[in-house]
């Protein structure tokens, strides 16, 4: 019953850019190796955000969330971001 007026959820992932030192990721990679997970070749630690939107317009939402990421949620000097939009209430 997620037809109209249910809104959207943006699930946003912000990660350190690949060329940027990520000391947390390096520390976790070391801990995983010491637990026997030698197959781990790299760990990057970032941030996950859920942003609920009271709009059902995916095209506009896509543009707006992109702007949110560029202006505040990620720092383009050191971070990359990606996100997906889902319909609220789908349990996805």
């Amino acid at each position: 019953m997620a037809a109209q007026g249910s809104g959207l959820i943006a699930r946003i992932v912000v990660t350190p850019r690949r060329d940027v030192l990520d000391p947390q990721g390096a520390a976790v990679q070391g801990a995983l190796a010491s637990l026997g997970f030698e197959e781990v070749s790299r760990v990057r630690i970032g941030r996950f955000m859920e942003v609920e939107l009271h709009t059902d317009d995916r095209v506009v939402a896509e543009q707006r969330v992109h702007k949110m990421c560029e202006q505040l949620l990620a720092n383009p000097v050191v971070e990359d971001f990606s996100f997906e939009l889902t319909t609220r209430g789908t349990g996805a």
């Binding site: 350190p16 940027v20 030192l21 000391p23 947390q24 520390a27 720092n75 000097v77 050191v78």
Partner: peptide, 16 residues
Amino acid sequence: TEAGLLPGALRHNRGL
């Protein structure tokens, strides 16, 4: 730096 008045960014200390 966040305001763009100076270049670069300050990240977590390497030694954590």
